[in-house]
Design a protein around this nucleic acid. Structure first.
Lengths: 169, 169
DNA sequence: AATAACTTTCAGTATATCTTGAAAGTTTTA
DNA sequence: TAAAACTTTCAAGATATACTGAAAGTTATT
């Protein structure tokens, strides 16, 4: 495998992974492309590299910018916009966790609390079971929430050091 | 909010959550329905409850069975198949993690190792950067892998107890 | 202030994914 | 063994999602 091929594979794999986890394939590919590039890239270059249209490139670059994973940079003397991707993998992971937590976990937590409230006067077996189920899911979700919150504050080395020690031997 | 409405909301929310994470909406809904039901359910009941076709119900029930989250049960004197869903939220979480790890994380780990190998004779700056990037991603992926492996072996209470203590205070 | 360089938008189109429904398959009952 | 009860399959249709390309918008240059 040549280095160029390796990069393409990496970009492809990142795209596939993204799409299996609810992130637009092209968005993930653009991000991968920027991760492996030392230089800032123009829209043109991204269009070229991934064989996608200008509109598609533009929209996904914007989305990545909104996610805080890509920054616009200006090159002196150049009129065209260039973009650089965040390179710190730990920061990327934290950022993605942050955004998805807000979008997806928080609403679920809210719903679960609401259901727990209305559900407090239950009588029959079926409702008791539902109450227990909601409680269990809520507990797990709260723990996940706290875990993610912890990650936000943690340093990578510290975090993995501690986590992996938990399972040692 | 009435209890019936609460259940519906729960099922809807579970479907939405699933679809944002690469799991078929209907599959997630059927699963939710089975989680909150004390009784085993027939295909008919599921079709009815979710307003979906027989084919759709059948395929998604099978998929859930393949995932090990749903079991077929026979009711004495009844000809029709009934299904019960796994109720233990921790087991469910572990099972989903197991399947998705195998399907998605493992292939990525394999690719990253391959790329690391071919990439060992690099010279120029660009390639060095690529090498570093691949290394960083690989490290993170390996850690995630180990974390998931740890979860497989862990008991819920033990696991969360330890994890949450890490971030205490 | 006109032209050129570049970016953004979005209606229409394409693609991937899910769903239906009816036919074929299977098992049970009479 | 035929009919009924039930399950599975899958081609065709429906839906959701992503992508294109050209027109409109913006900013810089002369």
């Amino acid at each position: 495998m040549q280095i160029k091929e390796a990069k393409q594979q990496f970009v492809q794999a990142w795209g596939a992974l993204g799409s299996q986890w609810g992130i637009n394939k092209t968005m993930a590919q653009i991000h991968a492309l920027m991760m492996v590039s030392t230089e800032a890239l123009s829209t043109e270059q991204i269009m070229e590299e991934l064989s996608i249209s200008r509109g598609n490139a533009n929209m996904n670059i914007r989305e990545l910018t909104d996610w805080g994973l890509v920054t616009k940079v200006f090159k002196p003397g150049e009129r065209r916009d260039y973009f650089i991707g965040e390179k710190d993998v730990w920061k990327i992971a934290k950022q993605v966790a942050k955004i998805r937590k807000t979008r997806e976990l928080d609403p679920i937590l809210k719903l679960l609390s609401e259901i727990k409230n209305i559900d407090s006067f239950v009588k029959n077996e079926d409702n008791k079971h539902f109450q227990k189920m909601v409680n269990d899911v809520h507990k797990l979700a709260l723990n996940v929430d706290r875990l993610i919150e912890g990650i936000f504050k943690a340093e990578e080395s510290w975090f993995w050091d501690k986590i992996l020690k938990l399972f040692a031997k």
